[in-house]
Design a protein around this nucleic acid. Structure first.
Lengths: 241, 241
DNA sequence: CGCGCGCTTGATCGATCTCAAAGGTGGTGG
DNA sequence: CCACCACCTTTGAGATCGATCAAGCGCGCG
């Protein structure tokens, strides 16, 4: 599936975030790493531990999550190929949340010191990684709004819009033919709802003709209508450089 | 009120985040800036604009917020003296949210290029600013959990715990004598609730003996009991370096 | 002294949760 | 190759938490 160098998805993403010179490009390619293939649901980082390597998602999907005291889970972000899953541990010791593979996935483990050194001593790469981390934070803010102030239907639609927009931007699908790698339980954990209610809202969206579903594959007929219903404006993804 | 150099709160914070050499210290003090005094509720950054200066909160309190389509507001973070309110605009053009003064406040406007240059070319300062931005993101993740999965009482208590812990760490108060600069409407906007329900939950917390209130001043008698009720664990604040 | 904003309280409503059970579906091993 | 099992999806009925609507109170400020 993923041809070429395993770090290619990362390089693709970095190039979308900043202009690189040949030596930056080479420095990225020279990063040491170790490839791993993991099954769906496999834990990649556990809250409270002190990671020594940074996890790059080469292929597949992943999510980050936290638990509250009763054991209920909240997913706080989804990730696609090219995403660094724990760039925060370059500068923060202890993981404050879990990271799991969502699907079967390929990951590359990059030693923190090497990556940190690039970030501290190569201004163009630093700018790219800064942008990446800051877009992450922007997405978190939008999620706070999403779970805090939108009703269930809008919330789910917004989550789907975001996923579709990010997949599109990374060349991994289109709104007309979108494979959602989530169970309804996972959608519920991301939106702060119950799986039962997610199911009802998906049915409602289908009945209203806003989406067509076939298993976990989805087609959004009228993107603009769906976008408006979802209260989705892609500005917060900062896709344009 | 704030004696000495206006950038002192920033320097204090940076020193809590990383070890500085004398030249780093000097570089910070040499930053150009413009001081402003603003009234409560004053807008400091507006969503959609392209800020030219970075806003440092020198004294007082501020918050960031977003609106959903019906006009409901979600506050996504609170800020205290020493916080950079829009460090994200060092690397992202357009503001994706609003920033407002919560109380009367003193701010310093620092030109982006000078600050960006420090961040890109001084590794020790870079590490400090990275840590700051990454802690911000960690707090956002905790807020997603808070509004997504905790019930109203726990949610409000958690917000109070976080505020108390951050004020304590910055030397701005103690749990035994905590001044909350928020209206109940603002607490509601931060927790994704209505002001009416916030009022009832504060009454409940008071009746249960967990807090004592006198206007907006609050005393938390048994911090550990309150912490447990609030499901609050300060780990995500990454206070220890 | 009066006005406005924030706080407080009551009554009712409704979105979402909980509990329960019945269909699907894909994967695995016999 | 088929059968079974685990997990996911779907649907129903009833309960509940927090929202909404409405009104009075109190304090600080002009």
């Amino acid at each position: 599936m993923t041809n070429g160098h395993p770090l290619n998805p990362l390089i693709g993403k970095v190039r979308r975030l900043a202009t690189l010179e040949p030596d930056d490009h080479r420095a990225l390619l020279d990063l040491p790493f170790e490839i791993g293939r993991v099954r769906a649901d496999r834990e990649l980082v556990r809250e409270g531990t002190v990671p020594k390597n940074c996890c790059l998602l080469v292929e597949g999907f992943a999510f980050r999550s936290k638990l509250e005291k009763k054991g209920n889970r909240q997913i706080v972000s989804f990730h696609i190929a090219g995403d660094l899953l724990d760039i925060q541990h370059l500068f923060l010791e202890r993981a404050d949340h879990d990271v799991h593979a969502l699907t079967e996935a390929t990951v590359a483990w990059i030693p923190m010191p090497e990556l940190r050194s690039l970030v501290l001593h190569r201004p163009r790469l630093a700018a790219a990684f800064w942008r990446d981390a800051l877009v992450d934070a922007s997405v978190f803010r939008e999620w706070i709004l999403n779970v805090g102030r939108r009703d269930a239907q809008t919330r789910i639609a917004h989550m789907i819009c975001e996923f579709a927009a990010r997949c599109s931007a990374a060349g991994l699908g289109s709104p007309q033919q979108l494979h959602l790698p989530f169970t309804q339980q996972e959608i519920a954990d991301a939106t702060g709802l119950t799986p039962v209610h997610v199911n009802r809202m998906l049915r409602l969206l289908t009945e209203r003709g806003l989406i067509q579903r076939d298993g976990r594959t989805m087609a959004i007929a009228d993107w603009d209508a769906f976008r408006r219903l979802a209260d989705f404006d892609s500005g917060y993804l900062h896709l344009a450089a």
